[in-house]
Design a protein around this nucleic acid. Sequence first.
DNA 1: GAGTGGTCTAGACCACTCA
DNA 2: GAGTGGTCTAGACCACTCC
Lengths: 237, 237
Amino acid sequence: MRNKFLVIYNELAGQIENGVIRPNTKLLSENELAEQYKTSRETIRKALTLLAQNGYIQKIRGKGSIVLDLSKFEFPVSGLVSFKELAQKMSKNWRTIVHDLETIYPNEEIRTHLNVSKKEKVWKVVRAREVNNEKIILDKDYFQTKHVPKLTKAICENSIYEYLENELGLMISFAKKEIIVEEPTEEDRMYLDLEGFHNIVVVKNYVYLNDTSLLQYTESRHRPDKFRFVDFARRNR
Amino acid sequence: MRNKFLVIYNELAGQIENGVIRPNTKLLSENELAEQYKTSRETIRKALTLLAQNGYIQKIRGKGSIVLDLSKFEFPVSGLVSFKELAQKMSKNWRTIVHDLETIYPNEEIRTHLNVSKKEKVWKVVRAREVNNEKIILDKDYFQTKHVPKLTKAICENSIYEYLENELGLMISFAKKEIIVEEPTEEDRMYLDLEGFHNIVVVKNYVYLNDTSLLQYTESRHRPDKFRFVDFARRNR
DNA sequence: GAGTGGTCTAGACCACTCA
DNA sequence: GAGTGGTCTAGACCACTCC
């Protein structure tokens, strides 16, 4: 992290999170910050733009940058967050149970989702997520074998994301999420503690790499009472 | 719209949408674009960054900017989109039925959501949304009266957002969305065609103005079979 | 009118990709 | 090594807010 603007971003973000810079106060002006960090104003602006995009501040022309009250916006987890990160943040007791881990010749549905040919094998991973002794999420993942040569039970029980990014060096760049509600399937009833719920919240997730190729298709199937999705949206213009 | 980078953004976005620039091809390089538009490279970069953020292109260092296949990512409506915009985009038959339009002294729940005092009145608007002759969404809106002095049935039947932004000149800057699933209330059963569904998808929406003050709290209650939410997330770094 | 953030410039150096 | 996008600079002018 030798990017100047990232260093400044992280320092300011940390100070806001720790209350060193208090909500509803104004940040130093861009010119003052440029002087303080001995850098150009454009670099400061890059850091502040990031802060604004991530919900730390609100920039107001002619006035300054106001520090937002983070506690009002807890967990803008919209983006790309793994179950492990999330579970740890909420400091819950959690466990992952791997029900299936194999390479398969995909059926037509998966082929269209993953955009692969009949002849290509894909990884299929089925995992149940248990939080506070209740199995409430069923994750069905499909990966391109050309990007993921090896996968073990241990990796699936920990975090596949960590493995892909840190071990394999894959660069995940963007994802498309779709949220819908369905009837539970037999598989849902088998692997989850459904307790009579009549619906399942399905989060379909398409994960793309830096070179725009599709890496993964995931269906995350949530028990409706334990589902919560938070999104933080800014007007672009 | 005299911002150079916005003009360039809109021109390129339009060309991508209309297929003039085809998916999976490369954009001209930043230097070439700077020359073509007779501007500096940083300005081109601003336009391209916006294109990338909105899912039009993927920038790859050392290679170039690849045009993404928009049809794969239809409707990245995540952000701040009104029901009217959405319904018109899907070109469905739609209708809005206003069930309630009044100013009230808010109860405690609304007071915490809107962060107002006991003495302040707020607007309460209850509307059912009918699409293809089925009432599938119940919208409950609460507005600060200090920002919205007047509100009529006609406005509520059309688009409150349009009124706030175009008539009142309010500058909406960001919103926090929360999606959960609940049991239907009596009100849901009364105003919606629930047809035996046991759950309601609730989208809670907090809308903030440019000066960081809270304008509106909305609960959008969807029949689960007609609910669909699409989100497009980029890794920030 | 002083100060703020928003836009724009022309140039520099870097890290990366690909032939 | 030529070309690409990523970062950074120092300076300019603008639109806006507030006194």
